[in-house]
């Protein structure tokens, strides 16, 4: 009987290994461990044996049974893993089929530049102010110290609109009128930037458009100096363009600032680029906004926003910004 059980375990191991799928294993399982199995038969015969013998055979049957159970469990795990792998293999996908170039929409490159500048100046403690694009003559010129009929108005090719008295209403030629609106509406201290759309009577070419964008800056506080203007623009230069860039101010002329300056940046290759007009807010401008120039002083600067967008992306034609060709829009 001992020999039979040993042989049975060997046979069982072979039968379990031969089971090729879970169904076959189930049949083998029943054959080896079920009610009609050899082990069940031997167990049923135990009662007829001598106590010593019964004890010996009983222990041996349990050992064989445990062994077979372990073999079946192992084999079942093997077969289940194989079956699962088969199912998963059948689900195989070529993921490159799904790379359809799905894309987000794109904010306009001018918007991106606009927001980048806003973020930079907000970080320096500035707020963002806005004003109407169709302006009155007073805010665009008069309050900015352009006397009526002054030749300095010729610096701006102004587009007027038919509204109110002739030449009383115009498409703002710069964002500077927003300076006036801010000073009219708000007590100093003022630390604001004013991005916006401006207009000139210009024929479109690669560097001119009848409509374009500027960003204006205005600081009015006690004790603001020309040195503060220079320092602020230098800080802006480094923050916006990077540490390889520096700046300089050169004397210039604007009716609404004095001293006035051009703001140039120096590229890492040593070349200069004229970027902005700026200066100390003219005492007449402060006075026209009801501020005492002896108490308050300030600086202002303004530069072309579109050109910064062109520079960042190496775009060589200003008109492209306004043509809205989808092949252009989706690049940024």
């Amino acid at each position: 009987m001992d020999m039979d059980l040993d042989a049975h375990l060997t046979d069982a191991a072979a039968a379990v290994a031969d089971a090729s799928d879970l169904d076959a294993l189930s049949v083998v399982d029943t054959d080896l461990l079920g009610k009609k199995s050899l082990l069940a038969t031997v167990r049923s015969q135990l009662g007829e044996m001598e106590p010593d013998r019964r004890k010996e055979v009983g222990r041996r049957v349990n050992e064989v049974r445990t062994g077979i159970e372990r073999l079946v469990a192992q084999r079942r795990a093997e077969l289940a893993a194989g079956a699962r792998a088969g199912v998963l293999e059948a689900e195989r996908l070529d993921l490159t089929e799904f790379d359809l170039g799905r894309r987000l929409g794109h904010r306009h490159v001018v918007t991106q530049t606009w927001e980048r500048l806003e973020d930079l100046f907000v970080g320096m403690g500035y707020t963002v102010a806005e004003g109407p694009e169709i302006e009155d003559e007073w805010h665009n010129f008069g309050a900015l110290n352009f006397p009526p009929d002054h030749p300095a108005r010729d610096m701006y090719d102004t587009l007027y609109v038919d509204y109110g008295e002739p030449q009383s209403t115009l498409l703002r030629t710069h964002t500077s009128p927003v300076q006036i609106r801010v000073m009219e509406e708000q007590e100093p201290p003022i630390y604001s930037i004013m991005p916006g759309r401006v207009f000139r009577s210009d024929t479109a070419d690669s560097t001119h458009m009848p409509v374009f964008h500027q960003i204006e800056g205005l600081v009015v506080d006690r004790g603001i100096t020309f040195g503060d203007l220079a320092g602020t623009l230098e800080a802006f230069t480094t923050a916006y363009f990077g540490s390889g860039f520096t700046s300089r101010l050169r004397p210039s002329y604007f009716p609404f600032t004095e001293p006035s300056a051009e703001f140039d940046i120096r590229r890492p290759d040593g070349s200069w680029l004229e970027l902005a007009g700026c200066g100390m807010v003219h005492p007449n401008v402060l006075a026209s906004c009801g501020l005492d120039p002896e108490e308050w002083s300030g600086f202002a600067f303004g530069f072309g926003l579109d050109r910064l967008a062109l520079m960042r992306h190496g775009i060589d034609d200003l008109r492209e910004l306004f043509r809205n060709d989808h092949r252009f829009l989706e690049q940024f």
Partner: peptide, 12 residues
């Protein structure tokens, strides 16, 4: 060159 210290909080 100096940078004035804004006493305000920058914000949108």
């Amino acid at each position: 060159r100096t940078v004035p210290r804004s006493t305000l909080t920058g914000h949108l």
